[in-house]
Computed example of a mutant assay.
Amino acid sequence: MMGDILMKLWKELTLILAVTIGVSGLAATHVQADTHTAFINQMSQPVLKVSRQNHLYGSVMMAQAALESDWGTSQLSIDAHNYFGVKGNYDGHSITMSTAEANASGSMYNTLAQFKVYPSVKASLTDYAKTLRGGTTWNPFLYQGAWRENAGSYMAATAVVAENYATDQNYAEKLNNIIAEYDLHDLLDRSTATSHDADTSTEVTPGVDYSSYDGSATIKSGTIRFYNGVPTASDKVKSVKTTQLANKKVKVSARGIVTSDQSIWYQVKSGSVTGWVQITDILGLKTN
């Protein structure tokens, strides 16, 4: 009799524990989902802005920031606004933290390294975009396959990023899974074709290295060539002769360098007029 009572109590206790564990698991899942959604909401506007300015896939930028910073919970992202694990210093600012490295045989070991400290989320994203658009000192075109003008899909872009940015063989798959799970392609890539995109007034030309530029300049006097996009020998973008901008101070929002001849162009804006002019047609160029 006593054995039956004990068995019944044990079953009831087991059931209570199972339910408790199940509820705890669901709660943990909800907390994780809420944390991920909050991260995406926090990062969406700066990601949209920076990805548009640099003609990159916003979905890839968001997924990589989430993966590298553990959805904004890493100490590096909290203390330094560093969402991509970038080493070095930013405007002379850095932080020393422990990191895992691989030796020549592939074995992992912990060591201390300096990482960049950024003043804001946007600064971190912009520096990341600069890396993707400008590559490295030994190969400025290392990531050109991830540029929107070269990558036909975000998956083509993640493949290039994974090959050159990380040693994890599953890196591209992890990025693609994040993008698919949170519909980042619809949220951040398709929306760049709307009227809110600052670059819809220009054409993206293959073979041009684009980068954002926040500055001002004065247009030279006389009649100049004003282009809808950066012209190249193989892509003669429509141009217009104009005198309406002569001697006017304009806002400079982007730079384009033609890789074949290294000619330099700037996207300028004055009122509702936006277009591209060659560096020889502007004076007093300066950053803000």
Score class of each variant (00 low, 15 high):
8 K>F: 14
101 E>W: 02
212 S>R: 10
114 Q>W: 10
218 T>A: 06
274 T>R: 10
41 N>Y: 04
230 V>S: 05
32 Q>R: 11
250 V>Y: 09
221 S>L: 12
193 A>C: 03
64 Q>M: 02
161 V>T: 02
18 A>M: 14
47 V>A: 12
72 G>C: 10
219 I>P: 09
201 S>Q: 05
262 Q>V: 05
58 G>P: 06
236 K>S: 14
59 S>L: 09
58 G>M: 06
259 T>Y: 06
62 M>G: 13
251 K>Y: 06
161 V>H: 02
155 M>P: 05
270 S>K: 08
274 T>C: 07
154 Y>L: 09
217 A>G: 07
14 T>A: 14
196 H>A: 04
270 S>A: 13
255 R>M: 07
201 S>D: 05
116 K>P: 00
157 A>P: 00
35 T>A: 13
252 V>F: 03
25 G>P: 03
131 T>A: 09
37 T>C: 07
45 Q>D: 15
212 S>M: 14
201 S>T: 06
72 G>E: 11
105 S>T: 05
282 I>S: 01
241 K>L: 07
110 N>H: 05
276 W>M: 01
264 I>P: 05
43 M>A: 10
37 T>Q: 15
37 T>K: 15
162 A>H: 01
31 V>M: 12
84 F>D: 01
250 V>H: 09
214 D>M: 06
26 L>R: 07
181 E>I: 09
27 A>P: 06
53 Q>M: 13
127 D>M: 01
108 M>N: 04
269 K>H: 09
4 D>V: 11
219 I>E: 11
57 Y>H: 13
31 V>N: 13
247 N>Q: 14
252 V>I: 08
170 N>A: 15
200 T>P: 06
245 L>G: 01
110 N>L: 05
147 W>Y: 11
58 G>K: 03
283 L>M: 12
13 L>S: 13
258 V>C: 08
201 S>W: 05
69 S>R: 00
43 M>I: 12
164 N>I: 03
147 W>V: 10
31 V>K: 11
186 D>E: 12
207 G>Q: 11
224 I>Y: 07
145 G>Q: 10
166 A>G: 04
96 T>W: 08
282 I>L: 05
6 L>A: 08
257 I>M: 09
132 L>S: 03
127 D>V: 01
116 K>Q: 03
288 N>Q: 14
192 T>L: 11
235 D>K: 07
106 G>V: 00
158 T>S: 04
165 Y>S: 01
1 M>S: 14
144 Q>A: 13
32 Q>V: 13
22 G>I: 10
229 G>R: 01
132 L>A: 03
183 D>C: 15
168 D>H: 00
283 L>F: 08
32 Q>P: 03
